[in-house]
């Protein structure tokens, strides 16, 4: 059994106005060293499979089909042994 931690973010080529607004707030707090803010989603789920390769394949397919829209989003995930 695994725990999957999935991160979904807007693709780098797409303007992220929410990230921009947060970046401006950081600047106004004098965090001048912090920039390039991108907002994303974190999805956690349990995978009831014992084989890591099978678990990876299942999560990857779920990301492509439902969890991310690859027209506008990129996704990454990691599997932790549960």
């Amino acid at each position: 059994m695994f725990k999957a931690i999935i991160t979904v973010k807007l693709r780098p080529s797409i303007l992220d106005p929410e990230g921009k607004a947060i970046e401006h707030a950081l600047q106004s707090l004098d965090y001048t060293a912090l920039s390039c803010v991108r907002i994303g989603k974190r999805i956690e789920l349990q995978v009831d499979l014992d084989d890591r390769a099978a678990a990876e394949a299942a999560v990857d397919e779920a990301c492509r089909k439902l969890l991310a829209n690859t027209v506008m989003e990129d996704y990454t995930f990691e599997l932790q042994k549960a």
Partner: peptide, 17 residues
């Protein structure tokens, strides 16, 4: 329709948020 692939593209959050 765009999520289902019947139409191309996607609808992002409004630029003004």
């Amino acid at each position: 329709l765009s999520e289902s692939g019947l139409l191309p593209g996607a609808l992002l959050r409004n630029q003004s948020l």
